[in-house]
Simulated assay, not measured.
Amino acid sequence: MSTGKVVAHCSSTRKGEDLVAFMETVAEAYKDVPKIHVVWDNLNIHYDGASNRWTEFNARHDNKFVFHYTPIHASWINQVEIFFSILHRRCLRWSD
């Protein structure tokens, strides 16, 4: 779906529970989309872990999420980070 809509959230912590809560927001925002592809790097909270957080999350949402992981030393994700840095410097820094 090409809407240009951005779903974002800032948090003071970076824990698995925080990410699950954010992903619940994503699931609600795109509830009418049949498949949602998520690209993640290799941060530890992006994996299932002992709690099977993403397996259970996906089951709650009819397995509509497809998780893709970047290779351990992927540099292409840096391009996304560069894009957001430019966006911040040129547009967002001076807005209220």
Rank of each mutant, 00 (worst) to 15 (best):
Ala29Pro: 04
Asn52Gly: 12
Ser11Thr: 10
Trp40Ala: 06
Leu92His: 12
Ala21Gly: 14
Val33Leu: 01
Leu87Cys: 09
Val26Met: 03
Cys91Thr: 09
Glu56Lys: 12
Phe83Thr: 11
Ser85Cys: 14
Thr13Arg: 05
Ser11Asn: 13
Phe67Glu: 03
Tyr69Thr: 05
Met1Thr: 12
Ile36Arg: 00
Ser95Asp: 06
Lys64Gly: 00
Thr55Tyr: 08
Thr13Asp: 06
Ser11His: 10
Ser85Phe: 09
Ala29Val: 07
Asp62Ala: 15
Arg53Val: 07
Lys15Tyr: 05
Val38Lys: 04
Ala29Ile: 07
Glu56Ser: 11
Leu87Ser: 04
Pro34Phe: 11
Phe84Gly: 00
Val20His: 02
Ile72Asp: 09
Tyr69Glu: 02
Trp40Glu: 07
Val80Leu: 05
Asn63Tyr: 12
Val6His: 04
Tyr69Leu: 06
Asn52Pro: 05
Met23Pro: 03
Ser12Gly: 10
Ala74Glu: 14
Val20Tyr: 01
Ile82Asn: 01
Leu43His: 14
Arg93Asp: 04
Ile77Thr: 07
Leu87Lys: 02
His68Ile: 08
Thr13Met: 03
Asn63Trp: 08
Asn52Leu: 07
Tyr69Val: 05
Tyr47Lys: 12
Trp54Val: 01
Arg93Leu: 09
Arg53Leu: 03
Ile45Ser: 13
Ser75Asn: 14
Phe22Thr: 04
Asp32Trp: 08
Lys64Met: 02
Arg89Lys: 13
Asp32Tyr: 07
Lys15Ala: 07
Leu19His: 10
Lys35Asn: 10
Cys10Met: 15
Val80Ser: 02
Phe57Arg: 00
Arg93Pro: 05
Lys31Leu: 07
His73Ser: 15
Lys35Asp: 08
Ala29Gly: 05
Thr55Ser: 11
Glu81Met: 00
Thr55His: 08
Trp94Phe: 13
Leu19Trp: 11
Asp18Ile: 03
Ile72Lys: 14
Phe67Lys: 05
Leu87Thr: 05
Ile72Met: 13
Thr3His: 04
Thr13Ala: 03
Glu81Phe: 01
Asp48Glu: 07
Ala50Trp: 04
Leu87Gln: 06
Ala74Met: 13
Arg89Ile: 05
Thr55Val: 13
Cys10Trp: 15
Phe65Arg: 00
Asn42Arg: 11
Val7Phe: 07
His9Ser: 15
Leu92Ile: 15
Met23Asp: 04
His9Trp: 14
Val39Asp: 07
Phe67Tyr: 10
Lys35Gln: 13
Ala29Phe: 05
Val26Pro: 02
Ala21Met: 14
Arg89Cys: 08
His88Ile: 07
Asn63Gln: 08
Asp96Lys: 12
Lys64Cys: 03
Phe83Ile: 10
Ala50Met: 05
Asn44Leu: 07
Lys64Leu: 02
Glu28Trp: 09
Ile86Ala: 04
Asn63Lys: 09
Tyr69Pro: 02
Glu81Arg: 00
Val33Lys: 01
Phe67Gln: 02
Ala8Leu: 12
Val80Pro: 00
Ala8Asn: 11
Leu87Arg: 02
Ile45Pro: 10
Tyr47Ala: 06
Phe83Glu: 09
Gly49Met: 00
Glu81Asp: 01
Lys31Asp: 12
Val33Asp: 01
Lys5Glu: 10
Asp32Ser: 09
Ser2Glu: 13
Glu56Tyr: 08
Val26Arg: 00
Ala74Gly: 15
Val33Trp: 02
Thr70Trp: 02
Cys91Asp: 10
Arg60Leu: 06
Asp48Asn: 10
Ser12Lys: 13
Gly16Ser: 09
Asn78Lys: 13
Tyr30His: 09
Lys35Phe: 11
